[in-house]
Design a protein around this nucleic acid. Structure first.
Length: 328
DNA sequence: CCACGCGCTGG
DNA sequence: CCAGCGCGTGG
């Protein structure tokens, strides 16, 4: 379980009442922004401190991993320059009956501020450049102490339930966004109904797309299963992000057995161009091992073609659940 | 309430 | 250099 800080001056009301976090994927000029990238490092059960108008006003618990979602319409003019598509995380927020102002407690907090990606300056002032950022455990402990009894019991309850069992509800949001794209394809009268059907079937890794992938890939790269009835054609560049051409491009697919397809589709694993398996640091190792993936020693599954590598790079950058803090 | 500009951080 | 979910100020 980790602790996060979110600046919500512009969207506090919508995000807390709506029960979510939302960020663009990139800055307006197209460059990446670490404070948006952090969205993909959040795990269900993580604790989120909500900061708005110089105060910590709410504490939240993540209920999902980040998934792609349109900008909430309720934002209105707030963040008008943000892109229409971004990352969303379901969060259960609890507004605090007694908000606290961190700037009044810097004598206790300052020593725990990280050198990089800190949510506050040493004088307690916030930073415009920050959206979401991780806070160290000792900083969080101090902050919880400052917030008082309500925060204490809240976070204790979260800690207890975190050790119980799963919270994974993120598939719901993904489906919601894909529905939107699906509807667009189905109502696109510039294509024949055959083309539309092929594109719709490609979403489930079946039909023409699967045939095309099968010309390049003969078996699941992890399990070695080669019977088509047990294989799904999984997109490297996800169906929802791809053009219609890319949705049907055989180089954009891998044949995988269902549980491996799930891990790849949801970003728990990815592959390098040379075939090396990448395991996300947020993945549950024992589950992976039970699904047939050896997480102890490095695995390779065979080199990929140049065209496949381009799609796999997209997967690594946009689907894989990364963790900056677990890299060295 | 909103708009502006001053800061500073990170790429 | 540029861009960013802050902050105080002034209307």
């Amino acid at each position: 379980m980790r602790y996060w800080w979110v600046n919500q001056n512009q969207t506090y009301r919508h995000e807390v009442e709506g029960g979510y976090l939302w960020s663009p994927k990139r800055k307006a000029n197209g460059h990446s922004n670490p404070f948006y990238d952090f969205m993909r490092e959040v795990k269900p059960g993580d604790v989120i401190f909500s900061f708005a108008n110089t105060q910590i006003r709410a504490i939240g618990v993540a209920q999902s991993y980040a998934y792609e979602a349109p900008k909430p319409i309720e934002f209105g003019e707030a963040g008008a320059y943000w892109d229409k598509i971004g990352w969303r995380i379901d969060v259960r927020f609890q507004p605090l009956r007694l908000p606290a102002r961190p700037s009044e407690h810097m004598s206790r907090l300052a020593r725990y501020l990280p050198v990089k990606y800190a949510p506050l300056r040493p004088n307690g002032s916030g930073l415009q450049s920050v959206y979401l950022t991780m806070v160290p455990e000792d900083f969080a402990a101090e902050l919880i102490d400052i917030l008082g009894a309500e925060a204490h019991s809240l976070v204790n309850a979260i800690r207890l339930s975190a050790t119980d069992s799963g919270h994974d509800t993120s598939a719901i949001g993904l489906v919601q966004w894909e529905e939107h794209e699906l509807h667009r394809v189905q109502s696109d009268t510039t294509m024949t109904s055959t083309d539309r059907l092929a594109i719709v079937m490609a979403r489930r890794g079946q039909g023409l797309f699967k045939q095309r992938v099968n010309r390049i890939e003969k078996a699941c790269r992890i399990t070695g299963v080669d019977r088509l009835e047990h294989l799904v054609a999984s997109h490297c560049k996800p169906w929802r992000d791809a053009t219609n051409e890319e949705r049907l491009d055989g180089e954009n697919g891998l044949l995988l057995t269902p549980s491996i397809d799930h891990l790849f589709d949801r970003g728990f694993i990815s592959f390098e161009g040379n075939g090396r398996l990448i395991v996300s640091p947020v993945a549950h190792e024992e589950s992976l091992s039970r699904m047939g993936i050896d997480t102890r020693s490095p695995q390779t599954v065979g080199r990929f073609s140049n065209a496949q590598q381009v799609y796999l790079e997209f997967h690594q950058e946009n689907v894989l659940l990364k963790s900056r803090y677990l890299e060295t």
